[in-house]
Structures are given as structure tokens and as C-alpha cells.
Design a protein around this nucleic acid. Sequence first.
RNA 1: GGCCCCGUAGCUCAGCUGGAUAGAGCAACUGACUUCUAAUCAGUAGGUCGUACGUUCGAAUCGUACCGGGGUCACCA
Length: 581
Amino acid sequence: MDIVNILREKIHDIVYELVEKKKLIQPLNINNIVVERPKKLHQGDYSTNAAMVLGKMLSLNPKDLGDLIKLKLRDEELIDDISLDGPGFLNIKINPKFWHSLIEEIMSNDNCYGEVSFGNGKKVNLEFVSANPTGPLHLGHVRGAVFGDVLSRLLEFVGFEVTREYYVNDGGAQIGILVRTVYYRYLEKLGEATELPEESYPGDYLIPIAEKLIANYGKKLKNLAEVERDKIIRSFSIGHMMEVIKADLRSLNIQMDNFFSEQAMIESNGIEISLNTLKGKGLIYKGTIDPPKGKTYTDWKVREQLLFKSTNFDDDIDRPIKKSDGSWTYFAPDLAYHADKIKRGFDMVIDILGADHSGYVSRLKAVIKAFSEKPVEFEVKLVQLVKLIKNKKVLKMSKRAGDYILIQDLLKEVSSDVIRFVMLSRNNDVPLDFDIDLMLSKSKDNPVFYVNYAHARIVSVLKRAKELKLWPLDELGDLHKKTLPFLENELALIKKLSEWPNVVRQAARYHEPHRIAFYLNEVASSFHSLYQSSSESIPYRFIVEGSQELCIKRLALAYSTQIVIKNGLSLLGIVPLDEMY
RNA sequence: GGCCCCGUAGCUCAGCUGGAUAGAGCAACUGACUUCUAAUCAGUAGGUCGUACGUUCGAAUCGUACCGGGGUCACCA
């Protein structure tokens, strides 16, 4: 029995009934009505703002409505007591015998506990990582990658159908730099290079590609015409870089469903096709744009360019599609790519981008609006910068400077599980310090450690219980037949566990996977607190010799906690530890 | 200058999308291991939620203006 959900439904029913009676004209926003744990213990087990939300909509006194709702709820067996407090909160005290049912609910649902379903099979396109195939991933990419991956898992968990997509920027000018640099490395390996080209990627990571080229082609490439040579190096290098990136993603336990190639789209005239659609809507024209106000340009040139009329869709200026030399701007293929997403019929499109792309958001929104016949939900999640810190010093990561820390090297020091958890230990739009020393510490400073430790403690207790033939439970009869009441600090943990479905719901609805990580910390804290507690100098034990009833009750609680931790970590793509290292 | 994000305890951050007396962790101080793992726990202390108006029964949360920090702004992708 999911107590919170039952309360929600009952309250919703009453609200609908009242709305019916009062003939409410405005649409009812039921999502504003929440059932939550109050901050203070004396305010009951759960509280709801239903009377206040409804009062506002019906222009009625919340207290009168509260009384009405209270009368309707009072007779429920689930509810022990209900009171109307403050500005109109209904504070609900749960009949203590139902806590056993909650524990039963968690144990019988196991992996599915918390599976709230509201996605209704809607199709979601979730684009993330999308790093250029000109170098390995850096920590910023990893943050976006983990964010996207966990959001995918979350959305799937609540019933959406998710396509995880990586946009491969294999068509633009930066690929030219890649090819040039690889060719330089190739010559260098043959002992013929002079100096690094002016525009290049100086990092060592391109050397293996050159070695492979030599292994495959020997010295032959030198003698080929430039066009032909570049073509070979190009596909060779992109292929190799994507393999490196895919390997990094695999090590981080991230699996994409689709790699969308920019180059392939360009070759199949994807850009022209999209532009024709826009032309048909009168959204393409030749014109000039003004320089940004307040910024001084010494070399501003007025240019006539092909422009997309994104100002029709709330963008600040119209955006150029072609450069003056007739080639595409960066935006052109991206426009076509997003048009393609719409064409594929997704109900929801989500982009996860680095915060340095914030200026890009409004034109992408414009593209989506221009192409979608019916409204498509579109959201861009910007992920802020990650600072890598070691020995209290910030390590710079730059493709240009070449001082690059490879994810594979980082993984030798810190496990993927730790990286994943830490990447979600902040809201996505606040910068993150990734402190390696902290990640290695075996203490509360290290957030995953704390959660894992709680899990390991539970596993250890259950193992001991098994040795004593106290576990598993089903050999010992049904829990609900045992009537021993829970202690106050046990109840604190149980109520925390009861929040789980709600945490999932909120995290999925608002696309905020970090909430899972924060919640798991709270569960771990509540568990450690119970584990360490004592009454009258007698330490708390899950296994109490001589009282099977106590054992059953407490072991069931421990096991329920394990289920919630396991489910939470699994959404984060992390495998819980059974014992500490 | 325009746009986006941030500003909450000494530090790092939550704050369930408008609710009750604003919460954690770290650092500081006090205390708890003969244990199913003390890598943990309990307690004390710490606040003009950047500032000022406004919206209403009610604002850290919404609006406007300002202050401070970061990002970004036409042939770079």
C-alpha cells in the first residue's frame, strides 16, 4: 500500500467532487495540490495544501473548505487524526498499523517500488553528449552525459519511450583541422614533419590514429592527391575518435540508441529539404543583420546573407544560414537536424547542452516552432561547467593547449559510480567542482560512499540474519500479522521511504535527476541514525536475540531500505556495494 | 550594452515550482565504540534568503528596477 498515493487519490477525488458542486469555470490544476511530509514532526505525518489551492480557485475561505475536506477524510481507516492548521493546511496522522502495510508494499514491489506511471508511452528524443569527434571527452561532456543518461532512465521508469541520441558533428570545418593535425602526426611518425600546423589539436591523443594510418597504408598517403588523401584520413580519424568516445561512454555505463551523423544528413540534402519547407512558409530571406548593440566592432562588415526569420518565434535576431562564401553556417545543419527530430514524430524533444551554448537556445526553440504542426514539448537543459580539482588546484582542460586529462586516466583513480554520483550532486545549472581527493576519501565527504555504506551495512545485517535462520522472511509468516508497533526513529526512516515515489515523480516531471542523489543521502542518513541509535544505553539492533517478532519487524525495515537505495542507485546507473572496500 | 544562469549560515549547496518557526553537509565546540562495519551517530552554535519596490491571505520562490559573479553575442564550431 502506497500511503502517499492513496492519500493523493482520496484528496483528488474530494477536490473533484467539490469542484463539480461549485461549478468551477477555470481549469483545475490538480498538480498544485500536493501531499507532502511537513517539515515539523508535530504537524502530522503528511499534510496537504488542497484547501488553500482550491480556496484560491473558488474564491472561498480556505478554512471553510478545509473543514469540509476534513469531514470527508475523517472516517478513513487509514487516517488516525486530521487537523486544520495555519493558513489552511490539513495535517494528517496515519493509523500506525498501516506502516506495516507500507513495508509490505515495498518488499512485494521490490524493483518496481516507486514506479509511478505518467509517461503513457509518449516518445521522447533526448539528445546529449554530442561532443565533436575531434578529441576525447572532457569532464563537461561527462556531466552532460551522466545527466542525460539518468534523465533517460528516469523518464523510462515513469513510462516514456526514450531515444538517446548523439549528434555527431562530422561535417563542419573543425574536421578539417582534425584531418590536418592527423596528417601532421602521420608525417611526424614517418620522421618528416616540420612543425605543428597553425590551427591544430596539439594533444597526444591523435598520435595513435597516425600510427594506425601507417599500419594500414604505410607511406602511400604521401603520394596521393590532397583531396583523396584527406578523404581517407577524414573517415579514418572520425571513425577512430568515435570509437574512443564510445569506449569512454561505455566505461561510464552509458549506452546511446542512435548516433545521428551530420555529414550523412548533409549528403542526403537534408539541409536543402528543410530550407524548402521554411521557404514555403516564407521564413527564409536574403538580408543583413545588425551588429549586437553595445558591443563595438572595428571590423564589422554589412553582409547580405541567407537568413532564417526566427524573430517570428521570439528570437532576438534572425539567424544566418549561409556564410558570404556560400557555405553553410554551423546553424544550418543543426536547424535541419532539429527539423528531422520533429519529422520523426517525437512528442517531446530534449537537448542537453553545455552552458556555453545558452545563446543558442532561442534559435533552436524557433526551429522547433517553425517545423512542428502541433505543439511539441521542447526543452533545453543547460549543464554548467565542471572544474577538476586535485591537491586543491584547478586543472585546466583544453583541446587547444593540449593539456588534457583523459577520462580513461581519471577512471583509473575514481570509479565510474563515483563520477556518476558526483555529477548529480548539484543542480544542473550551478557550476560543479570535481575534487578528486574528495572522491577518493572514505568518509561522508564522499557522497556515494555514505550511501553505499548504508547499503553495505544492511547487506551485512541480512547476511548475519540468514546465518541465524531469521531471514528470508517468507519462511516466517506474514508481516502484517505481527502487531508490534514501530519506534519513533524507525518511523522516521519509514516515512522517508514512503517519499520515494513522490521523489521519482518530481524528478521526472521537472527533469531534475539530482533530486534522486539528494534523496538517497537523506535515506542513508536516516538509516545510519537508526543504526547508531540506542535507548536507555541499550544500542539498537536489527537482530534481537530471543524476540523473533522484533527481528522480523526490524529486518523487514532494513530490507525495505535496501530496496529503496538499490532502486535509487539503479536509476543513477550505479551498482550498490555489498561490502566496503 | 542585449540575452541566459547564479547570489540562501564562515565554506559548499538543498529548498518538492507560492505555504507553516528557511534546511543539510563541511569547518568549530561537546559527547558516544567489549557492537549486526564508530568510514558512523547524538548535541551546541551559526541567517536582513544580494538590495529596493510591487503582486496577495502568504514570497527565498512570481514581476519590475538596480548591485555583484559567470557564460554568451554576424563568414567559431
